[in-house]
Amino acid sequence: MSETANIAAPVRLSDAAIRRRMLAEFWFYFSQNRGAVVGLAVFALLVLVAVFAPLLAPHDPTAQYRDALLVPPAWQEGGREGFLLGTDAVGRDILSRLVFGAQYSLFIGIVVVSIALVGGIVIGLLAGFFGGWVDTVIMRVMDVILAFPSLLLALVLVAVLGPGLTNAMIAIAIVYQPHFARLTRAAVMSEMKREYVTAARVAGAGNLRLMFRTILPNCLAPLIVQATLSFSSAVLDSAALGFLGMGAQPPAPEWGTMLAEAREFILRAWWVVTLPGLAILVSVLAINLMGDGLRDALDPKLKRS
């Protein structure tokens, strides 16, 4: 008798325990994907490099050593010990510039995704929640933005705002924002039909509460996946803008800008061209790998078969 009572008694878990279990479950699915774990490790390393850049970099990233122009990496003939990865055309240490460049890339990714995410969520929520003409107008505007090739629109926006890192980030965020708005809208529209929303409404929840506290938390999974993907695209696109002279301006050690400065030396000094591009590729790849894992863990519907 006492045994049956034991089984029937509801298992009560504290909020913290539930959260721990959810995290454990998340990690279980995430770690199933080996690439995702590698991506996470590389990304963590990148964050550490960015945070401790002043400690890690052997030189000031903008200091010009006039006696050391285009010095090859240390292991090559003519290389110097003080400059592990060589120097560029005006004698700046490549390693130090790459290390500080990590700060730029992460900063750009975070700022662009935050702006695009917040803007997209608010716009998508409005469209999905109110529907009708609000929805029509908003989604037509989003369609117009999406009609332009993203890099071209970003370029023209930067031409309007003036070249520079801040404007490049704003431009990229504007271009990315419709993707978030569309995703949010679609998720909101499917959640709106659920009973818990009706229940909350009957209980007297106002529009704002319904939108942000009741519905939004249930729409986050696809948004997080899209945010990771946009993070990597933001790193790529800002580097492309830097390469075209429209992003971060010299002497900033931004990877794309470094490549632009290195273009004329491609046949003479491989290291000034190869290394910044490799840094971009590795970071973007790590973030994309992580994105795949996040998708598997958060959104079983989209799970890669």
Binding site: S232, L236, A239, L281
Partner: peptide, 11 residues
């Protein structure tokens, strides 16, 4: 998919 194509072209 992760390739910065402006760099890829230079390579």
């Amino acid at each position: 998919f992760s390739m910065p194509i402006f760099w890829w072209g230079l390579l």
